[in-house]
Design a protein around this nucleic acid. Structure first.
Lengths: 311, 311
DNA sequence: TTGTATGCGTTATCAG
DNA sequence: CTGATAACGCATACAA
């Protein structure tokens, strides 16, 4: 017991005793067993993070930020890939809960009822990220994809574009952005723009292929892409066909990835602070776990439209 | 005990009993406690993965592959960021070992003696990845960065380039590639090529800036970059200055990231199968943990030079 | 400031 | 095929 205290709460132990313990730890190479510790204390110092995929330019910065912030707070990150289907996510979370994480980060707000039941029953703090809803499971850090779509449509209309084509991945958050976009377009007399569906993960090459596909089907003055990666691919494809961007064909992206500003032409896009999402999510979880009240359980980090050269 | 068996080894339990257990589990929402299970069984079904950084185009594919393969085998991934300093890594691994992972994945082969001692003492299977040495801690999956550098130099000389400039990040593996490169250049009468150092993580914009910096200092016919990301930035910077790539200035990358092939001009680079590294590492660990002999503990996955348009 | 008794929720082991 | 018992290595609660 004195060893336990010397290691975890040294201020409760006589300094000389602490020294002796530390010396013994060094001499023996003792490494505490966190499984036993967690079992006894009912706190695992573990945070489970569930994302649709890791090798995704959007999520990876958020994951890194979560990891960094958790490290500062003394937590470890259990990282799991759920794919884009709800059933996988529910099974995954059930398996994760068996490790008794002190908190969980879930990507998105659309979960199976099964998952919701399990997670509420487990009574573990949860932060949903990368989306927005007035009714989160528990806490939330994100932004409105619908509003991103609307803002994009408004920009596009203001600039005088009237023949938009969409280069779009098929995930749920992209769909929300599309809904917002199409709603505003519709209100302005542009209905059902042509869409090229792109498989996940969004890749540079799928952007090229997607544009090629679109150009066979119609005539456009602007291509709206569900991510900067696709936008960059589209720009290269346009240029390789002798089209000037934005004069002959404008391109709009999403995400403000690191290459967007430096690209030639610089990519007009929607900027989202991906690190802040992770940092806030980790902070909120750690605060809650450690007993502080989290006064604003729903954080809208917003976004801003970045006008550059491509549109 | 019967419940434990019904859940873990149902074949040892009468089917009717299994059914009853399953029903009770559903009815009560029971979730096994893996902390207790791990404590008792001394197997945690946990793999710790240590990388210098997550939001890095190189490692992220490997991480995803590890995660995917581990999921298939029934393991979870504890992911930690060590940065590029040895001390951080040693502290980190000590903390990780307290969770009693069944295996550990370390990036690179350069570790503090402290870390080596701790990890050998813990007697846990280890795979080092993304590098090559005849004397790994335990198992290894990687390739020779020095040979990559040599192959690059040979290609460059064969193509007739004689005034190379380097755009290089400062991490250890990049340094090995540089050493291989410079050695072959030296042997061919080209000594101490000019180098622009670039901070990690490698970004598109740092590629642009780095080239700008180089061009102020000298006259080059080829720019060799420590990653495709830098190469793409360099190409854009060159083009924006009215330089034709490769006619006026050739550019060589490393990694064969997804945009390399589709870029305009397509980027000449060194292709490395980043997924395979992760997949093999996970397989080797799981095999070893589950008692199979791992017959080849050191796997050189090799690389191949990809000649495209940029050089 | 230190120590003692007890229990956390499993699984290994052995007995039926 | 099922059950009883004893760890696993800590931290909580209380006593000294």
């Amino acid at each position: 017991m004195t060893v336990s205290r010397a290691l975890n709460t040294p201020q409760l132990v006589r300094p000389k005793t602490v020294e002796k313990v530390i010396a013994a730890v060094k001499a023996t190479g003792y490494i505490p067993n966190a499984l036993a510790g967690g079992l006894a204390s009912r706190r695992s110092k573990l945070i489970a993070v569930v994302v649709p995929q890791i090798n995704n330019n959007m999520f990876v910065d958020t994951i890194q930020a979560i990891s960094d912030e958790l490290a500062v707070r003394g937590y470890h990150m259990l990282l799991c890939v759920a794919g884009y289907t709800q059933q996988t996510e529910a099974d995954l979370v059930a398996a994760l809960l068996s490790r008794r994480p002190d908190g969980i980060v879930l990507t998105g707000i659309h979960h199976s009822t099964d998952l919701k039941k399990v997670i509420l029953n487990a009574n573990v703090p949860v932060v949903e990220i990368w989306d927005l809803t007035p009714t989160p499971l528990d806490m939330l850090v994100g932004f409105s994809h619908e509003k991103v779509g609307q803002a994009t449509a408004e920009y596009l209309l203001r600039k005088g574009y009237r023949r938009p084509g969409l280069l779009w991945t098929v995930d749920k958050r992209a769909a929300q952005r599309k809904a917002g976009l199409c709603e505003v377009l519709e209100r302005n007399g542009i209905s059902e723009p042509r869409v090229a569906d792109v498989a996940l993960p969004a890749r540079f090459t799928s952007g090229r292929q997607g544009l090629a596909q679109l150009l066979e089907q119609g005539d456009f003055d602007v291509i709206v892409c569900s991510s900067d990666t696709l936008a960059q691919g589209a720009i290269i494809e346009a240029q390789s066909r002798g089209l000037q961007v934005p004069q002959d064909l404008a391109v709009i992206g999403f995400g403000d990835l690191d290459f967007a500003a430096g690209n030639q032409p610089a990519i007009t896009t929607v900027s989202v602070d991906r690190q802040i999402i992770g940092q806030r999510a980790a902070t909120m979880l750690a605060d809650r776990i450690e007993g502080s009240e989290v006064d604003v359980p729903v954080v809208d980090i917003g976004f801003h439209f970045v006008e550059r050269e491509s549109a």
